[in-house]
Design a protein around this nucleic acid. Structure first.
Lengths: 213, 213
DNA sequence: GAGGAACTCAAACAGACGCTTGACTTCAGT
DNA sequence: ACTGAAGTCAAGCGTCTGTTTGAGTTCCTC
């Protein structure tokens, strides 16, 4: 009861704030930052145009807030998925963990998928001040490379980093392209066995049947 | 000299028409269809705003023409690359051929890369009337699946189609994301050995070391 | 050289855009 | 009951958008 009062006004304020972010996220996922429209967002959120200026200063401020919301939500899932890995994990387990957040988002659809689509778009057109969160992404990717190196001792670290970025790009593409929409609302149990070997194959590489001759 | 006259007017008209498409393509590659701006295009093309209405009817018309131009240019490269394959080609050769147009565009940069970026964006947000060209893409992909099937007899056709789409998505991602810009102006001889095993690995898949136990 | 087609241009158009304003309601503190 | 902060709202601001218009230039045809 000190600073947190049962204030009806404040509660309503937080509610319109959240619905603005949610509406912005939907539009962000569908058309990207350039596609945001003040009037369309406020209409979908059931709020007035001036609510954006009030809560976020400007449309750009709302856009940044929505993107940051998406990035943080994605990072949490990513860190949790990779955190479940051990140094003894197989390549297949690494690939499955790497793809898990996207697989679940594809299966769930709705706002979870909107978050992924937004993150993917940020990966294409990085906003100006995203360096702060970018370092977290880089660190998460380094963790993946470390576990990969244990499974693929013959591949150079730099090449593993490249393959990791390729695999991440592949997953982002699934979120954005129509193929992701086709996969949407498909159960996880069906998507995972389809996708995991592809990601694992990208990690593993396939150089030539020389060693089989 | 029959229908093609040494017409100074017509020549100038074709020149502004081409420069409008080129300027639109650059902007399309950078910001997508939503990012097109009539006044910015005409400024970059050195033309008047009304030249767009005159030559293409509307901004949408110019946008469609630029996208069609990019799609056709990409399809030519894709068909030519896959056409060089034979039924006896190895998986690595298939992957190299599949990636070749993108590798060359990345190395070349400039307008070639702009074409690829535009095609990739179309892959994310397909325009309305693109079904006509879409069938050509599908046929090209079927050719790739056919050659893949010869190399991977153990994998179902449907799964191969999925992996082909994944590989195509991976390449498109390279064109759009910053990693592609980092690779840009890197010689082909350096990009190809880095990328080919990843694409081949995605085609081949990596299911588990069960067969090695 | 008169006529006409191809093409370009500056200027203006209506509409949508992001943003600001000032009045209004609601509710906690006193 | 009064005050002030939090929040919402309709209306209007200037700017930028795509498009249209009509006059203008250049070149080929007859």
């Amino acid at each position: 009861m000190q600073t947190e009062r049962a204030d009806g006004r404040r509660e309503a304020g937080r509610r319109t704030r959240d619905s603005l972010i949610a509406a912005a996220l939907d539009q962000l996922a569908e058309r990207g930052p350039e596609g945001l429209t003040l009037r369309e967002i406020t209409a979908n959120a059931g709020a007035n145009v001036s609510a954006v200026s009030y809560h976020f200063g400007s449309l750009k401020g709302l856009c940044d807030a929505a993107i940051e919301h998406a990035l943080e939500q994605y990072l949490d899932a990513q860190i949790q998925a990779l955190g479940s890995l051990e140094p003894t994990s197989t390549l297949e387990q690494v690939a499955a963990a790497f793809a898990r957040p996207m697989v679940h988002a594809l299966a769930a659809g709705g706002r979870d998928l909107a978050v992924m689509r937004t993150v993917a778009r940020v990966g294409i057109d990085p906003p100006e001040g995203w360096e702060r969160l970018s370092s977290k992404f880089a660190r998460s990717r380094e963790d993946a490379v470390k576990v990969l190196a244990a499974n693929l001792p013959g591949v150079e670290q730099e090449e593993l980093a490249f393959r990791t970025r390729c695999a991440a790009g592949l997953l982002n593409w699934l979120a954005l392209a129509p193929i992701g929409a086709e996969l949407a609302s498909t159960p996880v149990e069906q998507i995972e066995p389809l996708l995991t070997p592809v990601v694992a194959g990208a990690f593993h590489g396939y150089s030539s049947p020389a060693d089989l001759r």
